[in-house]
Nucleic acid binder design. Structure first.
Lengths: 157, 157
DNA sequence: TATTGTTATACTCTATAACTATA
DNA sequence: TATAGTTATAGAGTATAACAATA
């Protein structure tokens, strides 16, 4: 590779570059979501909830909390709001009368699909400067960076 | 096709890897800052304010707002809180009696220095798996990516 | 007794709008 | 009239603590 950077690269600079880039990307994604003609304002965190439910098909609120890395109380609020917008529904868990199961509505699934398309477009636009090989390199480097397998994926700040 | 990454690397996967990694890092940094024996809870945003002031030495609130990318009202709150914690001071701008200049206190400078040390440690820990060369590669790739001037940001459908 | 989810409360970060003092 | 900052208000995202129903 060309080595005009190799003079010095303290860890802190690498991390700052990473954070800065990520902020930029998230701003772009956010603008994307809020400026398009979506029927609902699907903020990063709200979208994250929907995606987590989508992955499981049906999930308990307590499980959802730990999957998202937030507290149960926080999930209650998200579910309240998303239920009001008819993006998901609460169902009693037949196996445990204390528990509540969450499912997406049809509409939520359509919305998620739309968001996914927008994100693909945005992602392509952001990566025009990187070749296929460079993209793979980037993914590999990020994968090596640390053990963060347990960390939930998210799109917000 | 020889290695397991080169099969396919859709843009969206690269972006997700980036965001996920960045979240992980920020959580680590945050834990670092809140768990260490810092006299003040220097959250990410609060720290960002201090660093912005630090860079300029002395800065108007309005300038600070645009430097941070937030509204003037938001800066008022930050400055209120940080002034109460004696991390910065408001001074009248002699050149314009409407304006207010912000300066760091001695204590803030000490705190920033401490935070910087902690972050360097944390950054090193996060990057143990990457060689010097890989770090440079990573910075370079991120630099290409964030070269957003060239990206025609037309995300229309 | 322990767990699930909710009520009650609060904090941080951010915004818009209306106002004041100055320019 | 326009700009700098503040007061007033609001909303999203998150937390802890106390509690009810159930296990």
């Amino acid at each position: 590779m060309t080595n005009h950077h190799s003079a010095k690269s303290p860890a802190i600079d690498v991390i700052h570059a990473l954070i800065k880039t990520s902020h930029y990307i998230q701003r772009e994604f956010d603008a994307q979501l809020t400026n398009h003609d979506m029927p609902f304002q699907l903020s990063g965190p709200r979208l994250r909830v929907l995606l987590a439910v989508s992955e499981e098909g049906e999930i308990r609120m307590s499980e959802l909390a730990s999957k998202l890395g937030v507290k149960a109380r926080t999930v209650t609020d998200f579910v309240d709001a998303l239920e009001k917008d008819q993006l998901l529904v609460r169902l009693p868990d037949p196996k445990d009368r204390r528990a509540t199961l969450i499912q997406l509505t049809e509409m939520a699934q359509v919305q998620i699909q739309k968001v996914h398309c927008l994100q693909e477009e945005a992602a392509e636009a952001l990566l025009t400067n990187l070749s296929e090989e460079q993209r793979n390199e980037l993914i590999e480097l990020l994968g090596n960076l640390a053990n963060y397998q347990n960390v939930p994926c998210s799109f917000e700040e």
